[in-house]
Amino acid sequence: MSNELNTLLITLYVHLDDCVLPGLGWSRDHVPGRKPVLSDAELLCLAAAQHLLGIASERR
Rank of each mutant, 00 (worst) to 15 (best):
C45P: 00
E58N: 14
D17N: 06
S57D: 15
D17G: 01
L9I: 06
L24R: 03
N6V: 08
L46W: 15
S39P: 07
L9W: 08
D29I: 06
P22T: 07
R34Y: 14
E42Q: 09
K35I: 02
A49T: 03
T11C: 06
S57M: 06
Y13G: 01
G23A: 14
L43S: 08
S57C: 08
I10C: 04
L44I: 15
L43M: 13
L43N: 08
H30E: 06
S39T: 08
L53I: 11
Y13A: 04
L52M: 12
D29F: 11
E42L: 03
G25P: 07
V31M: 01
A47I: 07
V37R: 13
R60T: 10
Y13D: 07
A41K: 05
L38E: 00
W26C: 06
L8N: 00
A48F: 12
L8W: 07
L12F: 10
E42T: 03
S57A: 08
L8E: 01
S57R: 12
H51S: 11
L5V: 02
L52S: 09
L44C: 12
V37A: 02
S27D: 01
R28P: 09
S57L: 05
S2N: 11
L44P: 07
H15K: 11
V31R: 12
C19A: 13
L53Q: 14
L8H: 11
D29A: 01
